[in-house]
Design a protein around this nucleic acid. Sequence first.
DNA 1: TACATAATTGAAAGCGCTTTGGGTGCCATT
DNA 2: AATGGCACCCAAAGCGCTTTCAATTATGTA
Lengths: 342, 342
Amino acid sequence: MNLKQLSELLGLSQTTVSRALNGYPEVNEATRERVLQAVKETGYRPNKAAQRLATGKAGSIGLVMPTAPGHQSDVHFGEFLAGLGEEAVRHDFHFVIMPADPDDEVAALRRLAISGNVDALFVAYMRGHDPRLPMLKSLSMPYVVHGRSFGAELDYPYLDIDNEGAFYDATRLLLQLGHTRFALMNGQVHLDFAIRRKNGVISALAERGLVLEEDCISHTLMTDEQGLLAMERFLQLPQRPTAILCSSTVMALGAIRAVNQAGLRLGEDISLIAHDDVLPLLKPESFSVPLTTTRSALRAAGVRIAQRLIGTVKQAGPFPDQELWKTELIVRASTGPAPQQP
Amino acid sequence: MNLKQLSELLGLSQTTVSRALNGYPEVNEATRERVLQAVKETGYRPNKAAQRLATGKAGSIGLVMPTAPGHQSDVHFGEFLAGLGEEAVRHDFHFVIMPADPDDEVAALRRLAISGNVDALFVAYMRGHDPRLPMLKSLSMPYVVHGRSFGAELDYPYLDIDNEGAFYDATRLLLQLGHTRFALMNGQVHLDFAIRRKNGVISALAERGLVLEEDCISHTLMTDEQGLLAMERFLQLPQRPTAILCSSTVMALGAIRAVNQAGLRLGEDISLIAHDDVLPLLKPESFSVPLTTTRSALRAAGVRIAQRLIGTVKQAGPFPDQELWKTELIVRASTGPAPQQP
DNA sequence: TACATAATTGAAAGCGCTTTGGGTGCCATT
DNA sequence: AATGGCACCCAAAGCGCTTTCAATTATGTA
């Protein structure tokens, strides 16, 4: 069933039926009713491809999903997507996900943009001096970046959390508790948030004249396993750190196991603060020793970004171009006063 | 830049350029080279919407993502998607993800199909007597189901793992180790895999004349937190179970914490076998007590389903319509002989 | 040399929708 | 009676591609 058939069925022109369906005012209410009724009966749905070709609008936002045989999927990706989806479903938008080799992301993004399949783009996992940024700017298509790109000028639309502030505050708390030996379990070294978090730690330490030694920093994928390994390494250092900053609750999971296996007590021998993206599968408050965290819901960010993206496409009012969300520092039992020097 | 402009630029007709681009044989190799060269220089990309309108093919597979403000995202979803993507990227396919309220899935699926946006559909999280099945059958569009629908006739294309066999084998192992008091931590009660896994346990027990008591079964979301709660409940039963079957390594995480908190030793006081979807963030072999698991890589299933779907759309050879994958039972340290009766 | 055949290329007709630029009545105003 | 304004509706022109059918040129055969 297409428009033509439907209009013949009704004895109307395609024009009128189209207008009736799209809520144009110049059509008689009675006719509109008739059309709507016929749609219900026939189950007619406009062909999206045709609609898109005619209007140029697709009703969809595009994103590229890095993927390759060895490439690890990411819990955070799913949770963020859920947030995007939650908002998208309210506006009858959908996503076009283009899987791409991580090395090919810039090209994939361009293909996606030029394909005419999407109205707007979304990118995440920003890196320092991210090469996608100049490309996006040249594109004349709305986009929003999740995160920022360290080192690049801040003239693009983004939503980010205050990673530096979060880890600065967390470090300060540990300093106030008397800790002097710190370690940082961070995400991969090129990622923007990892850079900023590290800077937060460093500048808080600097205020007390302390430095973060290179062997007290790990940059890894944020998995349980890497958390375990990184913590084991830290615990074997001659000057064992007593205060750990950790970029993810998933990674903290492994880290805590390492602490337990070493016969140490979390919150007493070792204090740990992790960043919590509020993943539904992992609640820091119900860890056996509840976790002190810096918190910001990834999902909420997804909702907000979808709002801005869809709003821009629909030209529904102006949106702030740049948002920086504060995180909450929530103190639980995994942090405590520094142990007496052994 | 569109086809018309490109063809004018080259002094050729749209027809020829189109044919050159799409690999038709009746175009001179020299001209084809010229066209390809021009494409490189101008960065021309065909408009997908137009292509789709003309051919009816979209180069995309559709799936609906259940989502709502309260709805939990799922690690497994991301991992599976990674598998789909890994294959899709090889064929220049993409996904159209339609977010939908979980109550509205059937309708969302139909909308997606009729929209003309996709060539094939994929559905997962199957339930017993799943209402999406009759709908899909009526649709005359290729689809593959991940999982099966308990109670419905097996006349649809699916890929599933042998959930019943997996849990049957796991239960038998525990029986052989002398266990007699069992508990099952399962997924939500309406889900197909949960039904089959339960049946596997029940039938293995039945062979020894044992039954699975109602208070030894939990049906919950498969999160860390729910795992903790469920295990706590089991441990307080008057006849405490010594053998636990668990539907997910994520859930096992919480369960193990509950065991530790109760001062019990995993693999001695309590034996536990979990199903392992091979999530990169959680490796059962590196748990503090390595986990005995039934294993089947979710990601591999994603790859395979994408193969079948894309293959069908491209009419590339016949694919088996129904596949049932065996799982591996991998014995590690979380299982041991039943403790002496207290 | 004449004619069939193959190799290339083009013109034009769609694909299903939106939207521009008219109509056609009908009523109130002069 | 003539005019203008409204309310409704329609024909047809695109949107950018593919594909059918026809035309043109090159190649081979008798």
